[in-house]
Design a protein around this nucleic acid. Structure first.
Lengths: 245, 245
DNA sequence: CCGCCGTTTCGTACAGCGTATTGATTTTCC
DNA sequence: GGAAAATCAATACGCTGTACGAAACGGCGG
């Protein structure tokens, strides 16, 4: 830690030195722990180092730049976006399983949305995701580039959905708002906008409960239903266009 | 500028003081200019201040925190996501026009993707976008919450698509790669992955040209075609589900 | 015209960031 | 054992956002 340097006799400390030798894996794991707990902005070289009982510069033995660490975190977290076990035989079920896995992984590591839009991701697990998506569509007898287009469309929808979902869930935490505080801060602003008359369609929806912003993610998984519905819509459109239904 | 402090005699400089008085609008405009030219990471308080011929702390008279500046930039840029003039009467055409506008605006201000995933956006122009989307669906005789679901699905797809698109276009710039450099750096990595045999479906697609990563955005707007196709798929699925076709 | 006052601008300072450099230490291998 | 390589630590530089207090300004009543 650096602040507890004089804690206990030398030899005891000596045994603890060269603890779990600093490894790339340990660094990535520690960084992910920090990001999970406090968001990606809390991930700094110094912070991760202290987390591991090391000094900042020691990390640079295993990692060239901080950006590399972020890429490694991304790819590590993306391991969880892979469907385990056999994929369903039906292509729609299979690609849906992949998309669901993507959503779950990002929900577990919300900071991923900050990274996907900022860093290119072609790590091993990113490619495995591509491979798995292609495998999901392997029963289809269409040209490979069409499979890529389908995958892109489904990925796009899933990413967009999860970004919106995660942001709605994370916003109170990032701003350190309670629900009451948010209401107190937003209500006058919303009222002013409603009263302006500029939002004839929107106004009636704003008066009764902020739409879609309920942080209830409890038993009634409405967000999950929304995700499934959008996915179904997209797949319906695809199936119809390619005469696959 | 700050570096030219000793340029000319005092009294001459004195005349130029109190130039175009620092305003919130000027600050936001300068910040957007910097972000357009060099990315959102280049937007620092000091940088924007220099751009305006002011000192860093002067900005804090008009802006409380840097985050506020980012929010203001977001909303300002979102003004361009609004369809000008009358919306088409057909709901599909109307909502497509809105989505296309979203895409165009983000393509013009690529840094927007870094902000949408990081900051909540309920600025006036964000709300105007919601209002316009609802207006686009006003011909539909369905419950308001279904309209919101449709809008969410379309927005999600559009956002996901544009994020992927922008990232593909911006990556070479961010990494300061030429195409040749990228090839030189990526090829051995890709070859290794292909040779590993772990990617039976992906491998054949990787050998001939990196798929979808062509930065050609020239006359043949393939990305635009892809966007339209995915949008059509989504709308087809929606229309079919709601028996609106 | 002067002097006052609220607003705006600025200089300075602090803690934190990523990381280059250098030097000390430990581990590995012959 | 001793040389070579890997690892770790300390210091330092330039950057960041911004708290604080002093300065300069514009509009005002006298």
């Amino acid at each position: 830690m650096g602040s507890e340097r004089t804690q206990g006799p030398v030899w005891a400390r000596e045994a603890a030195r060269r603890r779990t030798t600093l490894t790339r894996e340990a660094i990535v794991a520690a960084a992910i722990k920090v990001a999970d707990a406090e968001g990606v902005d809390a991930v700094s070289i110094r912070r991760v180092a202290t987390e591991l009982g090391a000094r900042a510069m020691s990390l640079y033995t295993h990692i060239e730049r901080k950006e590399d660490l972020l890429d490694l975190m991304s790819d590590e977290a993306r391991a969880k976006t892979l469907v385990e076990g056999e994929l369903p035989g039906d292509w729609r079920e299979a690609i849906s399983a992949v998309a669901r896995c993507t959503r779950e992984a990002i929900r577990r590591h919300p900071w991923l949305v900050d990274l996907v839009s900022r860093r290119v991701n072609v790590g091993p697990n990113g490619l495995r995701h591509g491979e798995q998506s292609l495998a999901a569509l392997s029963p289809l007898r269409i040209a490979p580039e069409w499979k890529l287009r389908i995958i892109a469309a489904v990925d796009d929808y899933a990413l967009g959905f999860v970004i919106r979902e995660v942001m709605q869930r994370e916003t109170p935490r990032r701003y350190a708002w309670t629900e009451a505080e948010r209401d107190a801060l937003m209500r006058p602003y919303l009222r002013e906008l409603i009263d302006s008359g500029e939002f004839p369609h929107l106004a009636p929806l704003l008066t009764d409960g902020t739409p879609g912003a309920d942080g209830e993610n409890g038993a009634d998984d409405t967000a999950g239903d929304d995700f499934e519905r959008g996915l179904r819509w997209m797949l319906d459109g695809i199936a119809r266009d390619l005469l696959l239904d």
